[in-house]
Amino acid sequence: MNSYQHLVRAFALIAILAISGAVARASLVPDSFGKWGAYRAGHIDEERERQPLISADDGCLECHEKQWDMADGKHANVPCADCHFLDGEHARPLKGDQSLNEFALAESRRNSEMVFKSLFAAMKEGWDQDDIEKLSLMLSANEWGMRVRVYRGEPVIRQFGEAIAARRVPKGDEDLRKALAQGEESLKIEGERDAEVARYLYPLKVDAVCLECHTRARAGEINGVIELVYPLDRMKLKMHTKLADMPIDRSREACQTCHRYLNSRPEKHPQVKDFDEHIKKGWKADMGPVDLGSPCLRCHKAHIPSIVKKVSNA
């Protein structure tokens, strides 16, 4: 029997080693190890959960549709993030007026309310539609080119008769018809690039104050529509002051993205001598040899023939 003790001892040793091995393995190997392959599966989720920092252009387009169109020409292919270093902070929408459309809408509403107040004062004096036409012409003669027009709604026609010729609803004007019939506010940006106009329709809903004189109208009906048409340039200007609050990197660093070589050897590139002056002037005629993808190649073609070929093909 003595010899079997060797066996028992050996198995006991193996058992102890196996158990301690199993315990060590259980404590050292992470839970998710081996779930997808020979690695800790939890890491894939950790890696996925990291938040992106650099914004893609598609993200900018969501709000900055107008800026997108404006950023044409030489910088058409330059991603927004190159100059507007868009990280987490930038990706947040700006407070309040996020886009040109919203900005224009708020501005238009304010203006329409002003126009209505003038109208209201005139109406209280007992002005008829010829006088109101004169008033709207007067309002239209403003220095920033906003045109004001007032259209007569159904309840007013019922009470005071048809509108004069100048204020009839033009045929085929769906927006205006909708505004008059259903009280639908609308803002549309029309026209060619750089000469865009915003057309805003402000329906005047009948309320208790109106009913004092407009006796044949019912509350909730549309007494008329104020139409504002104005060039968008002014909006763009305002929008840009908004954009200036954003951390846009217009410093040397940002420009050097493409214009690095011009700055690296200023003595060889007299056309960009005064850099600050250059920025003030804007990126225009005195740019010197700048072409996207080939800032150097205009002059230094001989050095990099393959790139020149590619760029001229692109």
């Binding site: 890696e47 996925r48 959960e49 990291r50 938040q51 992106p52 920092l53 650099i54 914004s55 893609a56 252009d57 292919n77 330059v78 991603p79 993030a81 190159d82 993205t257 493409c258 996207l292 993808g293």
Partner: peptide
């Protein structure tokens, strides 16, 4: 480099591809 794994799994491009001005 992870090819910006956290971006590509969200359908974005890697950061380096996003900012490349010459494609």
């Amino acid at each position: 480099c992870t090819w910006c794994y956290h971006r590509i799994t969200r359908g974005l491009l890697p950061a380096c591809v996003t900012v490349c001005p010459t494609n």
